[in-house]
């Protein structure tokens, strides 16, 4: 199933500031809520987001239980060279969801 929604330009001029948006479908269960019969629903969130550009980290964020479901992050980077923008979301369990998109810089 498609679980991520990435918005980044396919092409940019060198030195241009580009906006990148990344959303992932995730319940971001806080661990503070009660389920049926008063049992706690265990915490299950994405606690780390990293964006790399040509292998170099350009943006990262620590996410906490108060972040909403389906977290949406928007940030800007300077287009320097053609390459791969890679996005990684790390779960509490250590599982990593990855998405990539290519960018051509002229």
């Amino acid at each position: 199933m498609a679980r991520t929604l990435i918005h980044a330009p396919k092409a940019a001029r060198a030195g241009e500031i580009i906006e990148i948006r990344a959303m992932i479908a995730h319940p971001m269960e806080t661990g503070q809520r009660m389920g049926v019969n008063g049992t706690m629903i265990p915490r299950a969130i994405i606690n780390r987001f990293v964006c790399t550009y040509g292998g170099e980290v350009v943006f990262s964020a620590d996410l906490h239980p108060a972040v909403s479901a389906n977290p949406f992050l928007s940030f800007c980077v300077v287009a320097t060279q053609s390459g791969v923008l890679a996005f990684a979301w790390t779960e509490d369990t250590g599982e990593v969801h990855v998405a990539t998109t290519d960018i051509t810089v002229t």
Partner: peptide, 15 residues
């Protein structure tokens, strides 16, 4: 559409 979380379900529906 890049900020609308409903699009995640639309993408699932397409699959």
């Amino acid at each position: 559409d890049t900020a609308n979380p409903g699009m995640l379900w639309v993408m699932d529906g397409a699959q």
